[in-house]
């Protein structure tokens, strides 16, 4: 049979978007990813696309909790041992960052909150977990319950780490840095809606469409971005509905229950994706206070309720 068909998710695909814009597309981190290059040659675009895809997949492979060979899996295997595990420098930086975020947010941003998924399945049904079930998981949540003395991490029995909340944004910034080192001309890196651009295109600012959370593929608003990062948090498709109350999928790690009155989606502009991503996530966690929080932070933001 022919050696080549239309490219699968894992391959690079190149397509033109309009007169003077090339997009190199690939799948990584369960998201459609793309590198946008105005006025580029196809061969150059493919080379740069490979650089970006390779970095995205490296980070995915290293930090995914679904991979047997990932660092996160190795940390999970060390669970319960008093000596813990010594982690590499990159992982240590991410853990430092996670600790800083945990402290800054008074425990709202917590990479150990993934265990709450055992109680919550946001399948659109009305099946809420019992308060006892949620309560029984809370002792396993809290970055302050870890012992983190770089480079040594001790993960107590029953606890889990999930870097999914920062991994994609971090990957955008990493890919951005690799590209910026080799390319002066404008480019935009977009991993599943978390994106960062180095400079405006020759024809003006980048046009970024923000999806309406309940209608995949339809832009709810178009933003103009000259440079910097934009991230969007929120997914209205994940929820439970009981007695007329909608329980969104954003869980407060301190109570184990969904944040009340969280916005449908929050988009934040900042210098880096990591920073923007954290701000949009924290804004969601504020629930009804999301607007107040974002305004106090003095960031450019867009909010859908």
């Amino acid at each position: 049979m022919p050696a080549r068909t239309f490219a699968p998710d894992t391959a690079l695909n190149i397509e033109s978007r309009g007169a003077d814009l090339l997009a190199v597309c690939f799948g990584a981190m369960a998201s459609p990813c793309e590198l946008l290059l105005p006025a580029a040659e196809r061969a150059v675009a493919l080379d740069l696309g490979e650089l970006v895809a390779r970095e995205a997949r490296r980070i995915e492979a290293k930090f995914s909790r679904y991979r047997d060979d990932s660092v996160v899996t190795a940390i999970h295997r060390s669970r319960g041992s008093a000596a813990g595990i010594e982690v590499d420098e990159e992982t240590a930086s991410l853990l430092d960052f996670a600790r800083e975020c945990f402290e800054l947010s008074d425990g709202l941003f917590d990479i150990t909150s993934g265990v709450l998924r055992r109680a919550w399945r946001f399948d659109g049904s009305d099946r809420l977990p019992s308060p006892q079930t949620v309560q029984s998981l809370l002792p396993l949540v809290g970055f302050d319950k870890l012992s983190w003395n770089p480079p040594r991490l001790v993960l107590p029995e029953g606890m889990e780490l999930d870097l999914g909340g920062i991994g994609k944004e971090y990957a955008v910034d990493r890919a951005f840095a690799l590209l910026a080192a080799v390319r002066e001309a404008p480019f935009l890196v977009n991993f599943g809606g978390d994106l960062r651009a180095n400079r405006p295109t020759p024809r003006g600012p980048w046009q970024v469409g923000i999806e309406r959370p309940d209608a995949a593929g339809r832009a709810a608003l178009i933003l103009e971005l000259e440079q910097g990062a934009l991230t969007t948090s929120g997914d209205a498709r994940r929820f439970l509905l009981k007695d007329g109350i909608r329980y969104g999928h954003i869980l407060d790690p301190r109570t184990g229950w969904p944040v009340r009155d969280a916005p449908r989606s929050v988009t934040v502009a900042a210098a880096t994706c990591t920073e923007a991503g954290l701000l949009s996530t924290l804004a969601m966690l504020q629930g009804a206070g999301a607007e107040t929080y974002l305004e106090a932070q003095g960031v450019i933001h867009w909010l859908l309720r």
Binding site: F97, C101, L104, Y170, R174, T272, T274, E275, L278
Partner: peptide, 11 residues
């Protein structure tokens, strides 16, 4: 500002 500093440290 602490958040920005933390992001920069990470990256």
């Amino acid at each position: 500002r602490r958040l920005i500093a933390a992001s920069c440290a990470l990256l």
